[in-house]
Nucleic acid binder design. Structure first.
Lengths: 170, 170
DNA sequence: ACAAAACATTTGTGGAGCACAAACGAGTTG
DNA sequence: CAACTCGTTTGTGCTCCACAAATGTTTTGT
């Protein structure tokens, strides 16, 4: 059971590194389609996560609420997403992927597939599929987690919140 | 068996997303150790890639040469890396990981392991190991690729180290 | 009904990260 | 010697992002 405790490479560092390499290699393709990585990420999360409030979406994407507004404005301006008010709570906006957004996402995915093939030439096709599946599941799990964390309107206020209040290293 | 040809999720987007989640979750731990993600990435690549010139390193990290200078200054200031001149070409700097750097890297990896466990709670331990292995191999392949790409114009003395015939790009 | 809180929005500020260009000294090569 | 390379420094500008404050709308608690 004990996994190799020799040198458990930081997954975080590897992710960061590969994400950068991948982004650099694919940004040209995306740029030609008027998209950026974060758009692709947002659309991807949205596709998985059906209708979501902006709050949940911001939490899932780990970006600030106010910054999500601009991101959604861009996507909505392109007709890729749609905002409508929630029926239950009309303060909320329900964000959804439009058919055009789904097409754009699928198209972009196919377009950058070739660029990704170059990046992952060190992996076999099956390994790449495995990698994709693992990444997908890992992100999926986190989206749910964040959505749950976002719904802290519970009667019980989190007595033990993150201790990050204000610790800006001087 | 048949790899899903329906919608091959963009690995790029998934990587970007997970890398962000991971970074946000681990940055507190790293900060307490006076490190940032890019330091960890650089150290990781350096550990794998033994002695490397700054040119090769910049290519591997996909960052600008001029910005690498500052990054290495920080790491060298902490005693984590060492620059020495190349014997063959004294214009070059050979960057290497110091024992302190290796300790710092190992220590940071162990420290953020816990934070990573929270991020990847959606995956079993074995799956996480698989993911790590795949990421490692993918980055390793790319480092070699970049090093080869960087040394395009000096085909002379490349027959030095383990040059296992990097696949020439078509 | 009224006050308080939540949500989305807009705007502004500040900082981090990075690409890019230009110039320099040191060292190489032809 | 001249031309080039490498690492370095400096400066400029852009992008991304967190954070704060103010506003309008809607919900919720009393």
């Amino acid at each position: 059971m004990a996994t190799a405790r020799t040198t458990p490479h930081s997954v975080s560092a590897l992710l960061d590194h590969l994400a950068r390499l991948s982004r650099v290699h694919t940004e040209a393709t995306l740029d030609a389609r008027g998209l950026r990585q974060r758009h692709l990420v947002a659309l991807t999360v949205l596709r998985e996560h059906a209708p979501a409030t902006q709050q949940a979406l911001a939490s899932a994407l780990a970006i600030d609420r106010t910054n999500l507004v601009g991101l959604l404005n861009e996507l909505e301006g392109d007709g890729y997403v749609e905002r409508r008010r929630s029926a239950e709570d009309r303060r909320r906006h329900i964000v959804e992927l439009t058919p055009a957004g789904e097409r754009a996402l699928t198209g972009a995915e196919q377009a950058i597939e070739q660029a990704e093939a170059e990046i992952f030439h060190g992996l076999s096709e099956q390994e790449r599929a495995t990698l994709r599946a693992l990444l997908q599941r890992a992100t999926a799990g986190h989206v749910l987690d964040c959505a749950a964390a976002a719904g802290l309107r519970d009667p019980v206020e989190t007595a033990r919140d993150e201790d990050e209040g204000a610790v800006p290293a001087a």
